[in-house]
């Protein structure tokens, strides 16, 4: 279980996260929704240890991550898998090398075993072995996302993080990615955090939903509860209404 307690973060005097409290229950998918630029990715980067909070705690299975540093923190992160917004595939490595990278770096598995695991993940993502030798630049947006998901899953993480997993994808491909998230979650049973503004598609994978607005969680509950939430800000966001103040 991941517990975020009173998390505060400011950049150049501007408070982006203003006392976030959130629990990610074990084995469930928690979805954080909110407008672009509201701090969803900043929240995710705090939990995976890429950013340090100004104050507050992030507790993963009873371990306060703010008390870990350097090598200890890095080793702790081996339990995590992260799907970055743009995929973050390594330009200089082909698809096979990208997916095999965490295994080659962090395990002493023989190459045959690594090859077997990579091909299993490729098949799981509905990718053929023909893509193995392609460089990331030669892949479509959807393929990149699936390869990145295969890489994030290769070490069988206990906790998965998805940062805007379908941004920039066409609707059928977005549905494919959400379907893959649901399928891998069902197979592996990982705890997950999905950060997205793709409403209502993201609700199909959500066990619980939290809405981030002006640095705070303003609503939390099941997808159905959020869709029927009385807060006008939540309703306005779900209905995709034009924000006249911002427009």
């Amino acid at each position: 279980m991941v517990k975020i307690i009173n998390l505060v973060k400011s950049f150049s005097g501007h408070k982006v996260l203003d006392g976030i409290n959130l629990t990610m229950p074990l084995g469930q998918i928690t979805v954080v929704i909110g407008k672009s630029g509201v701090g969803k990715s900043v929240l995710l980067k705090h939990i995976v240890g890429l950013l340090k909070p100004d104050s507050g705690q992030i507790i993963v299975d009873g371990q306060d991550m703010s008390l870990l540093g350097g090598r200890q923190l890095r080793e702790f992160k081996r339990r995590f898998g992260v799907l970055f917004q743009g995929g973050a595939l390594f330009d200089s490595l082909n698809v096979f090398e990208n997916i095999a990278f965490p295994l080659r770096e962090k395990t002493r598995l023989p190459e045959a075993e690594i090859g077997q695991r990579v091909r299993f993940r490729l098949a799981q993502m509905n990718l053929t072995s023909e893509v193995e030798t392609k460089l990331p630049d030669e892949l479509s947006g959807g393929m990149k996302k699936r390869v990145a998901l295969a890489r994030a899953m290769i070490q069988e993480p206990e906790i998965m993080f998805f940062d805007e997993p379908v941004t920039g994808l066409d609707p059928p491909m977005a549905n494919t990615v959400f379907h893959l998230i649901a399928k891998t979650h069902q197979e592996s049973g990982y705890t997950a955090l999905v950060v997205s503004h793709d409403i209502p598609e993201v609700f199909q994978v959500a066990d619980q939903v939290a809405m981030l607005h002006q640095g705070r969680i303003i609503a939390a509950g099941t997808a159905e509860e959020i869709q029927n939430h009385p807060d006008p800000v939540v309703q306005s966001f779900i209905r995709g209404e034009v924000d006249f103040l911002e427009a």
Partner: peptide, 18 residues
Amino acid sequence: GIMRITEQLDALDTMAVN
């Protein structure tokens, strides 16, 4: 620089690679 802005450095970090 490109590795930084495309989050490749962050990806290394989350894979426990310094």
